[in-house]
Amino acid sequence: MEINVTLNGTQRTDDVEPRQLLVDYIRGTGNTGTHIGCDTTSCGACTVLVDGTPMKTCTMFAVQATGKSLTTVEGLKQNGALHPIQAAFKEKHGLQCGFCTPGMMLTSAALLEENPDPSEDDVRWAISGNLCRCTGYVNIVKAVQHAGELIREN
């Protein structure tokens, strides 16, 4: 089936099988920053913003994305500059192996759109659909709050 999506600001038309998972479609476009970590909608490594809302793209079909705007980690930069969430993850050591990081940052970026000054509990709650095996989450929380500060300063 033919689908039309806006992927990181660029319109694309592709032919996909109905059963193709959205995450496989996205990765097939060369945007391999979106990862697959489980089979059961548990880990959130495949999280992408669909019309601005975080979705687990292992649990959507690519055909369902037609007409939608998708933002992956590759689309986070704004005018060539790192998104505050990207800068903050590095500054606060919010990542180790980097595998959960794209999904974690996208979920966090969506949180900050709604609430640029989240409490620790707000952040922990918001990212509780994204698993991280390395960091123990402490520095991820700090990174999200720091990104909020960067956003509020601008």
Binding site: N31, G33, L82, A87, K90, G98
Partner: peptide, 9 residues
């Protein structure tokens, strides 16, 4: 981190 935060791992 520079590559990981940009999805370029």
């Amino acid at each position: 981190d520079d590559r990981f935060i940009q999805g370029a791992g």
